[in-house]
Simulated assay, not measured.
Amino acid sequence: MDATLLLDTARAAAAAQQYPAGALYVVGTPIGNLADISLRAIHVLELVDVVACEDTRMTQRLLQHLGLSKKLMAVHEHNENQAAEQVVQALQAGQRVAYVSDAGTPAVSDPGARLVHAVQAAGLRTLPIPGASAVVSLLSVAGDTAAQGFAFVGFLPPKAQARLAALKALQGSAQALVFFESPHRVEELARDLAAVDPERTLTVGRELTKQFEDVVRMPAAQWPAWLKEGQHARGEFAVVWHARPPEARDDDAALPAPVLACISALAAHHPVKEAARLVAELTGLPSKQLYQAALASRQRGDDATDPA
């Protein structure tokens, strides 16, 4: 699309909203496909006085694609505290400032959190302009029906011993866990996930939204071999470590058989939360542990009162 037409379209779509002066606009940008930028993000980038950014060269290319020319200010992990003071001063002078990272939503894995904190601490406004996110994009196609929510872990420790310890600590989570990894360390992550829980399901996203995007689902045991095929080890990775199915968790293993029978019978006829509360009151056992046992029973379709 012609840049002038694109800017006109963005104004028509987004200009009706209020864009207060003296505010920081945290703008999500594409993670690979330039078409993923929103019309509202384009309008904000046109409107602001300054664009603070993780890498001025990357942001300059994005702005040129949009037909924009803006004053740029570098705000990255090495200067974020000092640069935040300059942003605060610009906001106090009544300017609008946008912050963008190299790709995706700032302050999730990229820099930006310290900047946002400094602006808020100064009593100034921070406004989110939603955009692309590798985390949400991959979760939307993971199909993890056993997960009780999700947690974004990001990059695991680079050293093998610390990475294995982190994975073992996370292994029993009832949530879907999202990791990021670079092509330089992805084979080590694959090896460790296969060692820790080889049957655990993974959804692997490679080069999300880009021309050679891959989204594949497999047991962790298969991932190391998949990486060795073709060019699969190249590119940036996001990985969903699916939640362990309730029957695979150890939460109810230590519960006495009579308690398991009771929780199973109650879960067959009452909401899971209510069943766990009742048994917790009767036994004094942790309600969280009982909730997991009741949920596992419900999902298995067990009914301890049925002799069959």
Rank of each mutant, 00 (worst) to 15 (best):
P130L: 07
D49H: 10
P106V: 05
L127S: 07
F152S: 02
R96Q: 11
V50K: 07
T56C: 07
P106H: 08
S69L: 01
L68V: 03
H117Q: 15
V51N: 02
Q64V: 12
D102K: 03
K71N: 10
H65Q: 11
A132T: 06
Q95P: 04
M73D: 09
S140V: 11
P111H: 09
L66V: 10
D49M: 05
G154C: 10
G112T: 12
G143D: 08
Q82K: 14
H65V: 01
L63P: 09
K71C: 03
K71D: 12
T126A: 14
V136T: 15
Q95C: 03
E85V: 12
G94K: 01
P106T: 09
A107Q: 00
H76V: 08
L72G: 03
R114G: 01
M58I: 11
N81R: 15
D49S: 01
S101W: 04
A83W: 08
F152H: 06
G143W: 06
A134E: 02
A121I: 04
S133F: 08
H65F: 05
R125L: 14
L115G: 06
A93W: 00
A98L: 06
V50C: 13
A83M: 13
A118Q: 15
P128G: 02
V87S: 07
H76P: 11
A118C: 12
V119Q: 10
A74M: 04
M73V: 15
S69I: 01
L63H: 01
L66D: 10
V48D: 00
S140Q: 12
K70L: 02
A151M: 14
D49F: 09
Q92K: 15
